[in-house]
Computed example of a mutant assay.
Amino acid sequence: MLTNADRVMPDELKFEGDKEFFTAALDRADLIVHGRHSGESQPNSPRRKRIVLTRSVASLAPDPSNPKASLWNPSGASFEAACDFAGVRSGSVAVIGGPGVFGMFMDRYDTFWLSLAPKVRLPGGTPCFPGVPQRSPQQVLAANGLKAGEPRVLDPKDDVSVTPWRRGN
């Protein structure tokens, strides 16, 4: 789960090692893609070029509140058109959305970094992918052609880890 039943990421799901890993990955990305509720608030956030998925525009529009952001309605324009509109024609993309956004990109991921905090339970929370909890996140990733790599421990005290799931070769 990404959030609790109130659709809030609770403090018990926030770990310093995971935050550092996440922030470093966003700093390396050429473009951030997320839903309207999945923004990020690190010190470098205002400098990051981003595409925000929304139904509030017909296809593509500049974000009136952020000169580094573009608004994209996937039913009105392709992802390639959104990238072009944002001025990004090559590089790496970090997708940080919720289940709908993650699901849209399942067939495009080169690598999906799956963080796990096995001691945290969030009954009734927001699942990370469509199809969870009927299937595990690992089953969803495998069903979409991704294979687990070696996990990296981010917080030994709480057994928090991140595993790269890469497109099969």
Rank of each mutant, 00 (worst) to 15 (best):
M1T: 12
M1I: 05
L2F: 06
L2M: 06
L2C: 04
T3A: 11
N4T: 07
A5H: 02
D6H: 03
D6I: 00
M9E: 07
M9R: 09
P10A: 01
D11A: 08
E12C: 14
L13V: 02
L13D: 03
K14V: 13
K14I: 13
G17Q: 04
F21W: 07
L26I: 10
L26T: 14
D27T: 06
D30H: 11
D30Y: 08
D30K: 10
L31M: 08
I32D: 05
G35I: 00
H37L: 01
S38H: 15
G39Q: 11
G39H: 11
E40H: 14
S41K: 15
Q42L: 08
Q42D: 13
Q42A: 14
P43A: 15
S45Y: 06
S45F: 05
P46Y: 09
R47W: 11
R48K: 11
K49G: 02
K49R: 07
R55S: 10
R55F: 06
V57L: 00
A58K: 12
D63A: 09
P64H: 04
P64C: 03
P64I: 03
P67C: 06
A69M: 02
S75Y: 02
G76H: 06
S78A: 02
S78W: 02
S78N: 02
S78Y: 02
F79G: 10
A82W: 00
A86F: 03
G87F: 06
V88K: 04
V88N: 04
A94I: 10
I96Y: 07
G98E: 03
G98T: 01
P99N: 05
P99W: 01
G100A: 08
G100I: 05
V101G: 04
V101C: 07
F102T: 09
F102W: 10
F102L: 13
M104P: 08
D107R: 00
R108A: 09
R108Y: 09
D110W: 05
D110H: 11
T111P: 08
T111A: 05
F112D: 07
S115L: 11
A117H: 12
P118G: 03
P118I: 03
K119D: 15
R121N: 13
R121M: 12
L122F: 15
P123C: 02
P123F: 04
G124H: 04
P127I: 01
P127F: 01
P127D: 03
G131H: 02
R135Q: 09
P137N: 10
P137V: 11
Q138N: 04
Q139R: 08
V140C: 04
L141F: 12
L141Q: 13
A142Y: 07
A143S: 14
N144T: 00
G145R: 14
G145F: 12
L146E: 04
A148F: 06
A148C: 09
G149Y: 03
P151Q: 08
V153S: 08
V153P: 05
K157G: 12
D158F: 06
D159L: 00
D159Q: 04
V162E: 01
R166W: 05
R166I: 12
R167Q: 13
N169A: 13
